[in-house]
Design a protein around this nucleic acid. Structure first.
Lengths: 204, 204
DNA sequence: TCCCTTCGGTACCGATCGGTGCAAAAATCT
DNA sequence: AGATTTTTGCACCGATCGGTACCGAAGGGA
């Protein structure tokens, strides 16, 4: 009988996977992929080295799982922004969300998707490429959303959805860099407001 | 007699310091501070490990020297932009320069000042802080330049020089992240153009 | 020529890196 | 109860990390 539920044979796991992932997210977020050692990670996750390997495979897969957890946690503002009714509200929610997510009170500043790994040695290259694809996926979702806005008349017919998406992602990534450097939430919100004052930017 | 010139006693150095620094710049640029090992660095610099330590002290000081070399080399567009006659030309030159510098044909993509170290473990923290100060210094120069533009009537009297500087640096840093992710020079120039279409953004 | 200073190459240091082998512990299944 | 399966803790692996001691090589000054 291949039951739908997970088999419960064997010794049960002594920790919560999601809680452990949340801890790993914070370490990768603050120190980057290469800067986070196994001791840093397992120490924060409060689990043994061996338990981590049993549960997640290796450091690279742990990072991948942590990124997924980050996406549906601190970075959930992206999906929420995409669901806004108008293109302008999408843009404002995306920028405002990125300001808040990069300056959360009890979290590392900046964005895991940016500072997790921008440049890396050989061992960190898969993580770097994973993050680049992650950011590119966000840009693609914005583009598709703006294309629908053009199709529905919410944006001018001559607007370039791809360019608008690239532009917004550029500002958001810049906000992440600023936040990592210590710029305050208030000042970054002013930057987001300033960006929104000229939205949508004219294409011609 | 303490002569002003460097003493020439002893065996002369067998390599050119600036050439070696240029090689180190490229390694740090492509792999980040933590991702660049001593073997990577000395291999690219074509000098011995010992020679590097004699000439530069340690990895951290080498990074500092490499950043200075980067500033007066690939990042010299910043100083050039600041010297433009009008605030609008400053902004356009700054953004255009960042697009070109982050997509140089035979160099790593992105900006050393960003991807050199955004998040780091304990050993990379000094490098990370150095880069944060480096970016902040650029923002401060832009702010001072825009303040002079306000004083001289080149920008509206109610313009906020600090906010405009932060905004421009945010877009430039975002461009650097995009470039590191593989976005082409042409597309990034379109983003820069789009940003300049609404310059200066209204403050009130 | 002899001395002094600096450079360059080798070989090595202790520490830390990511990853694993092994056996005890803790649960279910028969 | 005994067999089976999975987790956990400890010790350990080879490789690599940044950094250095040592010594011959290569130059200038007297």
């Amino acid at each position: 009988m291949t039951s739908g539920r997970t088999a419960t044979v064997g010794r049960p796991r002594g920790f919560d996977v999601d809680e452990a992932l949340d801890a790993a997210v914070r370490v990768f977020w603050a120190q980057g992929y290469e800067g986070a050692s196994l001791d840093d990670l397992t120490g924060a996750m409060r689990i043994n080295r061996t338990s981590m390997y049993r549960a997640f495979g290796n450091k690279e897969e742990l990072f991948s799982r942590a990124l997924a957890r980050y996406t549906e946690g601190p970075a959930s503002y992206v999906a929420q922004a995409l669901a806004q009714p108008t293109a302008r509200e999408v843009a404002a929610a995306f920028l405002g969300g990125s300001v808040r997510a990069t300056t959360l009170p009890d979290c590392p500043t900046g964005c895991l998707g940016v500072q997790g790994s921008l440049a890396a040695g050989a061992s960190g290259r898969p993580a770097r490429d994973l993050l680049a694809a992650w950011r590119e996926s966000g840009t693609a979702h914005l583009r598709d959303r703006f294309q629908r806005a053009v199709d529905g008349g919410d944006l001018p017919a001559d607007a370039d959805p791809g360019l608008l998406a690239r532009y917004l992602m550029t500002v958001a990534n810049g906000i992440a860099v600023q936040a990592a450097g210590g710029t305050s939430r208030d000042e970054l919100q002013l930057v987001a407001d300033l960006t929104m004052r000229s939205w949508p930017p004219v294409s011609s």
